[in-house]
Design a protein around this nucleic acid. Structure first.
Lengths: 250, 250
DNA sequence: GCAGCCCATTGATCTGCGTCAAGGCAGGCC
DNA sequence: GGCCTGCCTTGACGCAGATCAATGGGCTGC
């Protein structure tokens, strides 16, 4: 689209920010396909707080997150909300073959997405198998993440839930190389207490209390409300009840 | 494999029971591919109660469930368990591209699976794009189901959880045409109270109490321990807190 | 400066579900 | 028959986290 917008994109991937484009095209290069994709895509910006898509809406595009953070939520009639996805840069949004959105998608920070018109994207999927392959891998990863969350929601205590959330965001942050505070991990928490509560199946009061408790016990340090420093990542993982060592080096 | 075994297969799909074979080959027919798949596959039987695969095991096949029911579970170090998948006939097991299992797979009834050696299956995926497409669709469906479960685990009450489980199993049953008790829906519950508890993030005592309560209130009727009759499916859905009308006709 | 807003914190109390414990029932084996 | 074992039910009690409520702190706009 316009050059001004493109300039603002965080270049978190070698290939211009879009993982579909990146993986589909650059990794197994073919200029003809690149051409196709370039015609397909356009960037869209959303402001923090804006609900991008309402559940039940018609949805004529699929997209991948370029920068910013969005959430996927489901709501019961009486208003109980559960977040079912946290979309960080490089995550995929939408579902090929489905015209109606099944979740609310909300921007929690300013958000840029790289969108593909759904119909032509689906046709491209059929024509270029390795894009479908890549999408399959991404979906399988998401499924694993969802199952990890099911364990968290069903069996972990409030304290473990908070620690798990921090650990996961820290891990994702690190793997995107967004933040390396000289050895010490720290997380810019992109969520309000209420959003964290919606993610964890808790109330915002409990979230606040448990964060205070973790702080009191020296597991984390707070700088302001959102920036959380993790002096000892292993300690955090223990608190999370996770045995997997998660993949942050030091 | 042997004819005796094949004879026992529930023919729940037009094409011999295996959804991969069915959808990959018969739906968009091509005798050469059929040939390939026939060479790839073999059937395996497991007894009820047997853990088929342990998390961490090497896993050199992927499979689809032909008959019987299996569960996917995750366990924390201290023994807390959470079921993260319920595998009914036609469901897919395993993950292309991954050699190590991440969940325990347990047969809760006698189980027959149609297995494909992983490596050749992966190669076949690359060569026959529409199988990958089909697998993508199935994975996306599973992801939706997982997210539905996240809502259940995070926000529903014990009573709603039980009602939801019954509704979902009834729906799946109906869509497989396994059971039509003359207008009235009824569910052969394939799980012990403890397994239900593991699925729902509850204890077995709470499951038992809530089933008793639903029975007392006339929402369900029990015939023995496992066969559950649902006199009014809509009523059950209301109890489940679900607004979606689920797709069982009457 | 002050008002108004949003978000976070903390306290007091309540409650749904977990925990512990005591049977009950059906099937298999001696 | 009698015993055992696996599964389920029911009761009594306690606690983690929900609910209700008050306060504080930072930001924006006047």
């Amino acid at each position: 689209m316009d050059a001004m917008l493109q300039d603002r994109l965080v270049p978190h991937m070698e290939c211009g920010g879009c993982p579909i484009r990146h993986r589909a095209v650059c990794a197994r290069c073919d200029s003809e396909e690149l051409e196709t994709l370039e015609k397909l895509k356009y960037y869209r910006r959303f402001e923090a707080g804006q609900t991008v898509i309402w559940s039940g809406d018609r949805m004529d595009f699929v997209a991948s997150v370029i920068s910013g953070i969005a959430t996927l939520t489901q709501t019961l009639e009486d208003g109980r909300r559960q977040m079912v996805g946290l979309l960080l840069p490089s995550d995929f949004v939408g579902r090929p073959g489905r015209a109606i959105a099944t979740y609310d998608v909300t921007a929690t920070t300013d958000l840029v997405m790289c969108c593909f018109r759904r119909k032509p994207f689906e046709e491209m999927l059929i024509k270029t198998p390795h894009v479908a392959q890549r999408l399959l891998e991404m979906t399988l990863d998401e499924l694993d993440a969802a199952r990890e969350w099911m364990l968290l929601l069903g069996r972990k205590t409030a304290r473990e839930k908070i620690a798990s959330l921090l650990a996961i965001v820290a891990r994702r942050d690190a793997s995107l190389n967004l933040r390396e505070t000289a050895g010490k991990a720290s997380v810019e928490l992109p969520l309000t207490r209420e959003e964290m509560a919606d993610y964890l199946g808790l109330t915002l009061e409990t979230v606040s209390r448990q964060i205070s408790a973790l702080k009191r016990d020296g597991v984390i340090r707070l700088h302001g409300k959102r920036l959380i420093e993790i002096p000892d990542y292993r300690r955090l993982l223990e608190e999370a009840g996770d045995d997997s060592d998660g993949g942050i080096p030091a």
